[in-house]
Design a protein around this nucleic acid. Structure first.
Lengths: 344, 344
DNA sequence: GTGAAAGCGCTAACAG
DNA sequence: CTGTTAGCGCTTTCAC
């Protein structure tokens, strides 16, 4: 069913049908009714491709994700979709599937410049009005989408150079988390840092360190440990910390999986949380929802990151803003019972 | 940059450029070189929209998901993408976001017929060649996409009526799991069924029951419990089972979260897994990866479900197959140490 | 208020 | 082999 067919059925010109459809030009009530009746009866749906071609705007946003199976990606896409729907845009998804390709060599993304260019070609060919690039890790990457003249927003990653970006706050959040412990009276605070070389790990650690220093607490070397973000190493680090002769009263685990390791270690050692040891996590992952007591952790604003990425992109497309914008959203500390106060 | 511009730069007609681009008609080596040079230099990318309009085929597949944040969805999309990429198709994603809208009233999908129709309008308008509908729960739904004349495949759900579908095997898998326990000598097997009224729950239970009956084992009423798929109710059910005077030697938890509850219950009661009690789960969720001993559970073939959905759809589009096909893929039992053998 | 007609970028007869 | 040309379905001047 095409405009032309509708027009002839209604006994009007194609232009008139178009006017009715788009409310672009006044049409007499009578004509409008006639046309709308036919449209309803036939179940006509206008060809968006043809419209885009003619108007030279697709209202299509390319969402280029490094790996859709990485947990946060789905939530970010969800946020993007929500704004897209509200503003009459649609999203075309391109999935680089990096995870299966690089395993855990975070930085060797340059190897995949080829894949990215291919995806870029397709998206550009589809005439997308802009692209949101969703990272699988929070890190600095090259401006991989340099070849396209459309607006780009990087989400869950950033380029040092040009390009807008939307991230969440690692440093400030770790600061708050640590400050919370300090405010509860803790002075002997152990930390299980994330994988060495990972940017979130070092940012989170900086926040941790700053909270200590701002409160005049000396960081003890033996209280600083590292894990690979996984349960096992988290547990091992916790065992080390908890068996120190002067053991910490609180442990900041830089992600939830390692925090679960802390719980396990504490149980093995017969220590009670939070009475004997306070624990915090990071990520609010599914894995902690059955923990008892409830873990104090951090919820990243994933959906919100999707919203903001989309808003920035659309403003950019609309020409409202021309400059790159780089924003870092705050995280939410969750309620929980895994931290207790210390009598000072 | 358009075909026309390339043509004039190369001093040939648009037709010739098109021939070069598509290898649709023989072109002299000389002309080809000339044209390809210009294409490379200018970074020309053909307008896929225009091409689709002209050819009346978009090579676009609509992926309509009930909720992208439901864990399995991302993996299914990943599978769909992989085949799409291989076969030169692209996917446009539409996300109904049902989860936030209906919470857990599994069957009231009819309320959302409106949302679905809207998504359908858009996808049809985008001239997709077909649609894959990805459910958020494995269940029977109406043929919600009746209004479109393009091929449709339902994935992770099905319509009783018309329409192809791709699912995984609940019944057979639960049968295998149970049989495994029986083969190890277990005769007193408790079960923690999933939420009442849920289709996977009843299918899994049927598989469980059949394994018992095929091996001449009487199902004891007190060995049958139910949970709401969640940790807490799983744990409560396990406590009930494990404190029976004649307690079972094995517990089949119908999902992983409840299996974690069994682990917790066993520990509280001072029972050792698998020496005192064998445990199995279902789903291979992240939540179990730190369990010790390693849980024997079931991995659903999610990516494969994406592959097959796409293959069926593309065959359908190509006209290779016209009939509806409904397939049920087998699951993989994972290796683990949470089950032990019983001396018979 | 309505219609005729040009043209968005591309493909595919058809003619040469 | 190459070019001319007629559309694909739609929007949008420009006349009337």
């Amino acid at each position: 069913m095409t405009l032309k067919e509708i027009a002839s059925m209604a006994g009007v010109s194609v232009a008139t049908v178009s006017y009715v459809l788009n409310n672009s030009v006044p049409v007499s009530a009578e004509t409008r009714q006639k046309v709308e009746k036919i449209i309803k009866e036939t179940g006509y749906r206008s060809n968006i491709l043809a419209k885009s071609l003619r108007k030279n705007e697709s209202r299509l946003i390319g969402v280029l994700v490094e790996d859709i199976t990485v947990w946060h990606t789905a939530y970010i896409i969800d946020g993007i979709n929500e704004i897209a729907e509200k503003r009459g845009y649609h999203t075309i998804l391109s999935n680089l599937r990096l995870l299966s390709k690089i395993e855990s060599q975070f930085d060797h993304i340059s190897i995949f410049q080829k894949d990215i260019e291919k995806a870029e070609d397709v998206l550009a060919g589809m005439q997308v009005d802009g692209i949101i690039y969703v990272g699988m890790h929070d890190r600095k990457i090259n401006n991989v989408l340099h070849d396209i003249k459309k607006p780009v927003v990087y989400c869950y990653c950033y380029t040092g150079e040009e390009g807008s970006s939307v991230r969440y706050s690692n440093e400030k959040t770790a600061f708050q988390l640590t400050k919370k412990l300090i405010d509860l009276g803790h002075r002997k605070i152990g930390v299980i840092n994330g994988l060495e070389g990972s940017e979130p790990a070092s940012l989170r650690f900086q926040g941790f360190a700053q909270a200590l220093s701002e409160h005049g607490i000396q960081m003890k070397e033996e209280y600083v440990t590292t894990g690979n973000w996984k349960f096992q190493e988290g547990k091992e680090a916790a065992l080390k910390l908890l068996t120190l002769s002067d053991r910490p009263t609180a442990i900041v685990a830089m992600n939830d999986e390692m925090a679960v390791g802390v719980f396990d270690a504490a149980r093995e050692l017969g220590l009670e949380i939070p009475k004997d040891i306070s624990v915090t996590g990071f990520d609010n992952a599914d894995i902690i929802h059955h923990l008892s007591p409830k873990l104090v952790t951090v919820e990243r604003p994933l959906q919100e990151m999707g919203y903001r990425s989309m808003e920035i992109l659309l403003d950019n497309i609309a020409g409202i803003s021309k400059e790159d914008v780089n924003i870092t959203l705050p995280c939410r500390l969750t309620e929980g019972d895994s931290v207790g106060s210390i009598l000072i």
